[in-house]
Design a protein around this nucleic acid. Structure first.
Lengths: 223, 223
DNA sequence: ATACCGCGCTCCTCAGACAAGTAGACTAGT
DNA sequence: ACTAGTCTACTTGTCTGAGGAGCGCGGTAT
């Protein structure tokens, strides 16, 4: 979907063909490709064009060229970043994954939260309470609050996962809130306060359960 | 660690400098860079070299050049693939994330598993039981079993996450098992059978709890 | 058997030229 | 005044030819 109306330059076409041949297993993992002059002749393009195609694949981490030695295959396919994966998945599937990590993170946070963590969580909760009518502001402060819980869990992997999931859900949340605003803001805020209290009390199972309940409701609203 | 003993060609250096300037915010997200000739003159390299640098960043998804218009910024930084993130994290942190997704997946599988899923899970469990002394085989069959549970959860995001985590944990598991083999294989197999039964009985909370207990034990062993 | 050297192959870099495409300015017609 | 068409300057795309630099292999002398 990036091109649509975007003629492919020869270099890009050459890169595609080359990648296809690598995927097809024409050259094994550490093996050497034919020289650029040979490849250029095979595809019927100039050397510089061929070099640019190789550079593009080198940028993707598929090829590595060493002066004097040749061009070598360093990966049989491009490494997919999670934005690409999340783009293919449904919002429901993403939120289910979010439930998994946030519930676990809440439980971990109940064990590991420091006084500093707790202060940050409470501050984020207070910011969330400011009854701003702007939907964007509402979603952002809510996201910021949830993130402080993740930070309190002290697990880098979970934080990275959270940061990846949020942008995917953000749009869906704003659209949903614009169409159907929160009916009872006080009730919503109270639910979040209960989560904070559970973390403060080091009650891991309660924290996990409250987090799960909140996100499950969100999932229902978005599906 | 990729370079180590690997002189950087001019094109690679130019790409690095360019990326640094983009990261520094010199050009905003959709904005246009100076022309190739201008940039080449700025960095003191030939235009072909500059073009290769641009192509490399285009391969990383940071730049996009359109004939007649110019070169445009499409991302303010390279998208990180999860192998890089997981490489920085500790094995303990990765397993904690694995606990999060596998426990949730077990619960979802208890609800959504089809008869076909159940057959696949039982087949994988049986393969696991073959008391092969080879550690590699043991880890692989165990991984394959856990994956069938993920598949039964019918959530693509969770499966992708699992597939990403496994290679990171694989090495640690084989090393651990080689140093200290399983003392009671029958007991271990029984624990897995209990998980299967819970999924078959559609007992979500039991499935989640059994999965969590099993992986927590693994985490203790590996930390 | 080992150490050294040379040679061919490969990638790296540059310069110049022309083609192809875009976008804004300019102009003519309504 | 507004719109449509054209024109032009600037940009990226492609090719060619040339020389430089590094690597690896085989030959040779010790």
């Amino acid at each position: 979907m990036p091109p649509l109306v975007h003629r492919h330059p020869l270099a890009a076409q050459a890169a595609e063909i080359l990648l296809a041949r690598i995927r097809a297993g024409e050259w094994a993992l550490g093996h050497k490709l034919p020289g650029e002059t040979t490849l250029a002749a095979q595809l019927g393009v100039g050397r510089s064009t061929m070099r640019e195609a190789i550079r593009e694949l080198a940028g993707k981490g598929v090829l590595d060229s060493r002066q004097g030695a040749g061009v070598f295959v360093t990966a049989l396919d491009v490494a997919e970043d999670w934005d690409a994966v999340l783009g293919r998945a449904t919002v429901g599937a993403v939120i289910e994954a979010r439930i998994a990590i946030e519930a676990e993170a809440a439980a971990l946070a109940a064990h590991r939260r420091t006084p500093t963590d707790l202060r940050a969580i409470r501050r984020a909760l207070a910011a969330r309470a400011l009854g701003d009518p702007d939907v964007e502001f509402l979603v952002d402060t809510d996201t910021a609050f949830h993130r402080t819980v993740l930070v309190a869990a002290h697990n880098d992997v979970l934080i990275e996962l959270f940061d990846s999931f949020v942008p995917r859900v953000h749009r869906a949340m704003t659209d949903m809130l614009r169409a159907r605003p929160i009916t009872a803001p006080e009730e919503d805020q109270a639910a979040h306060l209960a989560l904070v209290d559970a973390i403060a009390d080091k009650d891991a199972s309660a924290a996990a359960e409250l987090s799960r309940a909140h996100l499950t409701a969100l999932k229902e609203a978005l599906s």
